[in-house]
Structures are given as structure tokens and as C-alpha cells.
Amino acid sequence: MDWKIELVPVPVSDVDAAKHFYVNQVGFAADHDQRVDESLRFVQLTPPGSACSVVIGEGTTDMLPGTQRIQIVVPSAVEARRHLLDGGVAGVSEVTPLEWGTFVYFSDPDGNQWSLQELPARPAG
């Protein structure tokens, strides 16, 4: 039986500003933006090439803005960093090589933290 993560909540204080950041600066696709009722607005965003999306909105999580930490695997940490800088994302880290991968870090305007990991080459065998 396959178990697949489909949706991860990201708590934000300003839904429209966060949607703009993730779509226009980071490059996520805006899949849905639905006002269900006065207490629930569901905005689903998907990173390029990902099978898992994030949800921001009103009434989508009890988490406080800035408390989420998410890690994404990318083909190239250097290219991912360049993409974020080209999109105007502030505070993007330098590329950090570690034994278990090469990383780039950034935060959204609320302080939710993102780690982008380029996996190390797998040994031949």
C-alpha cells in the first residue's frame, strides 16, 4: 500500500501577501483559491515538479505564523538559490555543502523556514 503526502499547512498572517510571495517570488503554482465560508479560505500552492502541495489560508491550521519548517529536495542547490534570488526572495542563504547533501535556506515573510536539499550522489553499485 502506498502512502503519499499530499498537503502540508503553512501558517501565514496575510494570505494575499503570502500567496504573492510563493507564486511570484518562489515560483509555486497557484492551484486553488477558494473562499468556502467567512471563516475558511483555502489556497493550495504546489512547488514546481512536486506531488505534494502546501495550503495557506484562513481556518486551515491552528499553527502560529512562522512556526512551520519544510524541506524540499531539488536537483541543484546552486540553481535553486539562483532561482530564489532572481525572484527577489530576501535572506536566501549561501549554498551549504554537508555530508548528507547540499543545502540552501530561506524563510517566507512570516518566518516559516524552508530547506532546499540537493541529495548527495549515490554510490555506484
Rank of each mutant, 00 (worst) to 15 (best):
L84I: 12
L64C: 03
D62C: 03
D62M: 10
L64R: 08
S50P: 06
L119I: 12
G91W: 06
G66H: 13
H83K: 06
L116M: 05
D110R: 07
M63D: 15
E99V: 12
V55Q: 07
V78F: 02
L119W: 01
D62Y: 06
N112T: 09
A90G: 10
G57E: 07
D62S: 14
A90Y: 02
P75V: 12
T96P: 00
G111V: 12
A90D: 03
A77P: 12
P109I: 08
G66P: 11
I70C: 07
L85F: 01
Q113R: 15
T60P: 01
L119P: 13
G111K: 12
L119T: 08
E58M: 15
Y105M: 03
E118V: 01
D62N: 10
P97I: 00
S53I: 11
I72F: 13
N112V: 09
F106P: 07
V89K: 03
L64H: 03
V73P: 00
E79P: 06
V74Y: 03
C52Q: 15
T102I: 03
S107R: 14
P65Y: 10
P109Y: 03
E94S: 09
E99L: 13
A90W: 03
E58Q: 14
G88V: 12
G101I: 07
P65M: 08
S50R: 02
T102H: 05
R82G: 05
P109S: 03
E94A: 14
P120T: 04
M63S: 15
A90S: 15
S115V: 10
I56P: 04
F103K: 10
T102F: 00
G88I: 10
S50G: 10
D86T: 13
L119A: 15
A51E: 15
F106A: 06
M63E: 15
C52H: 04
P120G: 05
S93D: 01
I70R: 01
A77F: 00
G87R: 05
L85A: 04
V89H: 03
G49A: 09
D86L: 12
L116P: 04
P75E: 00
T61Y: 13
T61G: 08
G101F: 02
H83R: 14
V104M: 02
W114Q: 06
R81F: 08
P109L: 04
D110S: 11
P75F: 02
G101W: 00
A90I: 09
G91P: 06
T67E: 15
D110T: 11
V78D: 09
Y105Q: 05
G101M: 07
Y105S: 00
R69M: 05
V55T: 14
S76F: 11
P97T: 08
P75I: 05
L119H: 09
W100T: 08
I72Y: 10
G49M: 10
I56V: 12
E99C: 08
Q113N: 07
D86G: 07
F106T: 06
G59K: 00
E58Y: 11
P120I: 06
L84E: 06
D62E: 14
S53T: 11
Q68H: 13
G101R: 11
L64P: 01
Q68T: 13
R82T: 11
E79I: 05
E99T: 13
A77I: 02
F103N: 11
A77Y: 00
V74N: 04
E79N: 11
P109W: 03
A80E: 04
T96K: 07
Q71P: 01
G111W: 07
R81A: 12
T60R: 09
D110P: 11
C52K: 01
I72V: 12
A51Y: 09
V55L: 08
S115Y: 03
R69E: 01
L85K: 08
